[in-house]
Simulated assay, not measured.
Amino acid sequence: MARLWVCAAAGAGFFLASLVLHSRFSGSPVLRNLALQISWKREKILYRLDLDWPKYSEYFTGATFCVAVDSPNGLVYIAQRGDNIPKVLVFSEDGYFLRAWNYTVDTPHGMFAASTLQQQSVWITDVGSGSFGHTVKKYNSFGDLVQVLGTPGKKGTGLNPLQFDNPAELYVEETGDIYIVDGDGGLNNRLIKLSQDFMILWLHGENGTGPAKFNIPHSVTLDSVGRVWVADRGNKRMQVFDKVTGEWLGAWSNCFTQEGPSAIRFTPDGKYLVVAQLNLGRLSVMAAPPVGNIGDCSVISTIQLPDQVQPHLLEIDSKTGAVYVAEIGAKQVQKYVPLNNHIHALGG
Rank of each mutant, 00 (worst) to 15 (best):
L51V: 10
A10T: 05
H204Y: 04
T104L: 02
V69N: 13
T61P: 00
P217H: 09
G250F: 09
Q147A: 02
G329D: 07
D184Y: 15
L187F: 15
V325Q: 07
V333Y: 12
V225M: 04
E247C: 03
T61L: 03
A17Q: 08
V76H: 13
S39N: 12
W123N: 02
S195A: 04
G62A: 03
T107R: 15
A2T: 10
T107A: 13
I124Y: 08
A35V: 12
G176N: 06
K138V: 00
R3C: 02
G226H: 03
G82L: 00
N188H: 09
T107D: 12
S298V: 12
G183T: 08
G234T: 04
V291H: 12
G110K: 10
N215G: 03
L339A: 08
A35T: 04
D317E: 02
Y96F: 11
L89D: 13
V136I: 11
C297V: 11
I316Q: 13
N140A: 02
V309A: 14
L201R: 14
L249V: 11
I78P: 03
G130E: 07
K243G: 00
K87Q: 06
K155T: 14
G246E: 01
D94P: 03
D223W: 04
P167C: 09
K44I: 00
G110Q: 07
V309T: 15
T320I: 01
S121E: 09
G234L: 00
E173L: 07
H344M: 07
A251M: 10
G176R: 05
D269Y: 08
L117E: 14
V337E: 15
H342P: 00
K55S: 05
Q310W: 14
D242Q: 05
L283S: 10
V333T: 15
G210H: 04
I328N: 15
K137G: 01
P86T: 06
N279S: 11
N33Q: 08
F25R: 06
S121T: 06
D94G: 03
A288R: 03
K271C: 09
L191I: 06
I294G: 14
L346F: 15
K213V: 01
T61C: 03
D223M: 01
P261T: 11
Y56W: 01
L49P: 11
L21A: 07
S262D: 14
W5Q: 10
V172F: 06
N254L: 00
V136L: 05
I216G: 05
Y47A: 04
Q119S: 09
Q308L: 07
R233D: 02
L203K: 15
L278A: 08
